[in-house]
Amino acid sequence: MSGTTAAGNTGALLTATRLRKYFGSTAALNGAGFTIDSGEVVAVMGPSGSGKSTLLHCLAGILEPDGGTVHYDGRELSALSDAERSRLRRGDFGFVFQFGQLVPELTCVENVALSLRLTGVGRGKAESSAMEWMARLEVDDVRDKRPGQVSGGQRQRVAVARALVAGPRLVFADEPTGALDSLNGERVMELLTGAARDTGAAVVLVTHDVRVAAYSDREVVVRDGQALDAATGIGGAP
């Protein structure tokens, strides 16, 4: 892990410090810290309701924390405008959720290409890149099918292709295998972590499954709203 400078720029790709997030009077995060370097795969584990998904949403700028800071590549997320944060989420971040969350009206290739279309890439080029990623994720044969017409495992691979097609530096994966059987889950993890390692992308992997966590480089455990590095017992960031 990298050390923090006064400016909060740690040399790490993303650093969160003393995050607090309340839902009503309940503290989902209570001073949680976190850091991830480029190319690292970090598993975030913890019991149900421990705050691990809330942590991921705060790190990704989907939720605004009530206290604390998140620095990505030296920039503090809360200091960015909504438009800048959106641009970051479209260009630098990739997302994989438990149920894929693909657009049901679009075909699989259109879903994957959407990530690029939103950054201004033309349709032909976007779909050509999408097809390359779909082939890599072994779902090029379902290109013209809609998400509802393919299996859960295929849908999740399409979601991984969509997360990676724009060349993100950081992928947020929230229980990416939670809805899959063990064989499909294993394949999705191999493809996700393999592709991330090849492209140098870092992955924040929220999971309750130790077999999935075993694909990571290290583990952070969220307990009572705090995030601790599992190996050292020290907070994920100062």
């Binding site: 393999g194 130790v210 077999r211 966590a213 075993a214 694909y215 583990e219 599992a230 017992g233």
Partner: peptide
């Protein structure tokens, strides 16, 4: 228990890499 869990997970990582 924490130390043991980490040791188990370390071996699981190693076997997962080997399996892949």
């Amino acid at each position: 228990l924490d130390v043991q869990r980490n040791e188990h997970l370390r071996l699981m990582r190693e076997l997962t890499r080997r399996k892949t």
